[in-house]
């Protein structure tokens, strides 16, 4: 073997190390132990909302400025920052999660979804058909949420800066867990 070839082999060692480290990733697939998604990892710098009784949440978009037409897709994650396992219920998004969007003057953005549904109490109570307890170990993140396009639910065509916040609350006995307040800029056409 030539000396030069040995040098080339060692150059690939870090690549091999990374590849074989990947085998251990399966360990995090234990039941009840939610692993953070890649998206959440990549956005580690995004600020979290205030922790309430061991839970905190955050939302983020893939960019800050949007034109008046393109989708405004928002990602959402909840983390257990307490030192005991916590249960977050998946029973349909709006059963225990709410999206608040405000315009620059602080007024709620016009809701274009089902207005009668919007007026229901929050968190919703009573009868659950899909009702799934998701156990979060300390430090675990639940990001198994659809990244909704806010424009499916709110009128956000007017240029300006909108404030978006997600609120999670399982029952009226619990305090609401509010995400970071995300600022989204809708630019004027052609700007």
């Amino acid at each position: 073997m030539q000396r030069g070839e040995v040098a080339v082999h060692s150059r690939y060692l870090p690549v091999l190390a990374i590849l074989f480290c990947g085998c251990n990733a399966m360990d995090s697939h234990q039941r009840g132990l939610l692993k953070p998604s890649g998206a959440a990892d990549m956005n580690a710098a995004i600020v979290w909302g205030e922790a309430v009784d061991g839970l905190r949440s955050r939302i983020w978009t893939d960019k800050e400025r949007f034109n008046p037409e393109e989708p405004i897709t928002v990602h959402y994650a909840i983390q257990n920052v307490g030192n005991q396992a916590r249960t977050v219920w998946h029973r349909g998004f709006e059963a225990n999660n709410r999206i608040d969007v405000r315009t620059e003057d602080g007024k709620p953005a016009h809701f274009i979804g089902n207005a009668s549904a919007r007026s229901k109490t929050f968190p919703q109570r009573g009868n659950w058909e899909k009702n799934v307890p998701v156990v979060l170990q300390p430090g675990a993140i639940d990001d198994a949420y659809i990244a909704y396009n806010l424009r499916d639910f709110f009128d956000m065509k007017t240029p300006g800066v909108y404030s978006v916040q997600y609120v999670h609350q399982d029952s009226e006995d619990e305090k609401p867990v509010k995400s970071n307040e995300l600022k989204i800029t809708v630019a004027a056409p052609g700007s």
């Binding site: 349909g92 998004f93 809701f111 089902n114 058909e129 899909k130 990001d143 659809i146 639910f153």
Partner: peptide
């Protein structure tokens, strides 16, 4: 699920029990 997506709509437009995430 029947509804309970944002705005009282379905969670998504697929017939499955789980959402894709």
């Amino acid at each position: 699920p029947y509804d309970l997506g944002p705005g009282g709509q379905r969670e998504d437009n697929l017939p499955w029990y789980w959402t894709d995430p």
